[in-house]
Amino acid sequence: MLKLGFLIIVRDLRLSMRHGSSTTMVVSFFIIVVTMFPFAVGPEQEILRKISLGVIWVAALLSSMLSLDSMFQSDYEDGSLDQFVLSPAPLELVVLAKFIAHWLSSSLPLILVAPLLGILMNLPERGYVPLIVTMVLGTPALSFIGGIGASLTVTLRRGGVLLSLLILPLYIPVLIFAVLAANAVIDGDPVMDHVLLLSGFTLFSAAIAPWAAAAAIRAGLE
């Protein structure tokens, strides 16, 4: 059973590599969105330092959302999704594997690029490790919650806008706890509460997302 999940992850990663552009586009979008902010708020180092964490996090959130649309799209179009539903393997496992593949192909690259954006946004030196750690802890929740949204809207014609309207409010806790935690480290405040809440939220979303998404796909394909 686990082997099946692993195979689906490998398959999805291979597909996203062969389609090529998707990961590169997400990373480019991430960099460009962050680059917009100095133009908007002015190049003063002090202001940039203050907003750096928040800006990078919001950009990461939007970038990871960019690729959600395609999470189930091609499977739906070529009929693989119907096969997944019909196959004896639990659909919950299949969608979980797809969430993990989404995280590997669209969030992990963001984490690798994030320090570079930290330099652009004048992030204080003590901020780099917390930025990476909170992203590692928080971005899986983006894939899980976003995956629920993707599964809800995959069979709809105008799903894209609805998808962002549905899931952005649910992303807010991740944003709050991640930025609170990273800023607490920079300011030397106690940090454990925020980190635990962030991890808790990620684990919780991991626990409910496969069931919600599988139910949504079954309802959508009926």
């Binding site: 629920i148 809800l152 799903g159 409010p169 649910l170 949504a216």
Partner: peptide, 30 residues
Amino acid sequence: FIYLGYIAVWQTIEDQAKAAKIAAIVAMIG
């Protein structure tokens, strides 16, 4: 915002039975 998203689900999906199921999942997550 969550209310708006929920209302949008009903408006986007034409098939009522399907809309009911998907809206229910949205509501329970919300």
